[in-house]
Nucleic acid binder design. Structure first.
Lengths: 141, 141
DNA sequence: GCTAAATTTGCAACAGAGTTGCAAGAATTT
DNA sequence: AAATTCTTGCAACTCTGTTGCAAATTTAGC
């Protein structure tokens, strides 16, 4: 399976040991183009990894910049893959996410540009998170 | 105390019974111009209200449109007062919040306009939440 | 390929956030 | 002031996330 090799390389590039849970969880992210919550991963991983392992794996991936978190109004943390060109600097920039009101699918709109936001005097912005709520392509059909 | 009367009227206008906890919690929101988390309210309320009461009170206020929630990256729910002209329609619109990276103060920037965000084809936006992270006026001095 | 060192996993136990049912207590209505 | 309605507090529970530690796995050296 070629994807598995890609994932292995991704892990090694980030100086991480290649383990079952890491392979499987990354695989899930590559299969899904939307974002995943911890609970999704716990269900979909199948292999019955310990909750703690999943938490730690996700944290590790966030630390390494492989995935990033998405803030949502319902206070459920979701994670999404960072694109390959998404290096450290990425998270300093603007970032747009879309949450579908019908199916709750959360996707990362990397291509959408966030217009500059004018703040009151005295305020300095370092980066902004934008969460757009609405109806996704699938649900609007 | 005149403010107490204002708060009482606000409650009655929303068909809510006037109780100690509701008065006190609304008072906190009026004193504070930033946002409050559940934990903040528990500490600051002083009067030792039950945790459950605070949860239910906040939920009631959200339902009535008196306060609204703010999504943050650290996954801590915060609540802020809606302005008087902030009726139901408000939450359909854009909304900008600012979180200070130094003091964690969260404020609601009602006056800032959010530029329209262009989405890929097939996607329909109903409203957007923008969270700007940076340094607030107090901390930048 | 095998051993030692380093890393990762799973378990147990815990902390915190939030919810629900229900009886007792307040506020509102008449 | 009594009856009704609504709200509170308690207890118990679920869900999410964290920490310490021993066992298991992975990696690196030989």
């Amino acid at each position: 399976m070629r994807q598995t090799q890609q994932i292995q390389q991704l892990l090694k590039r980030n100086q991480l040991s290649v383990t079952d849970s890491r392979l499987r969880i990354l695989e899930l992210f590559f299969q899904q183009d939307g974002a995943l919550a911890h609970a999704d991963i716990e269900k979909k991983s199948g292999a019955g990894f310990d909750r703690v392992t999943i938490y730690r794996t996700l944290q590790t991936f966030v630390d390494k910049g492989i995935i990033h978190t998405i803030p949502t109004a319902d206070n459920a943390v979701r994670y999404a893959l960072c694109k390959d060109d998404c290096t450290q600097g990425h998270h300093q920039d603007h970032h747009v996410h879309f949450v579908c009101e019908r199916c709750s699918t959360t996707i990362c709109l990397e291509d959408v540009e966030v217009p500059a936001i004018r703040l009151p005097e005295g305020y300095t912005a370092s980066h902004a998170e934008v969460v757009v709520n609405g109806v996704c392509r699938n649900c609007s059909q």
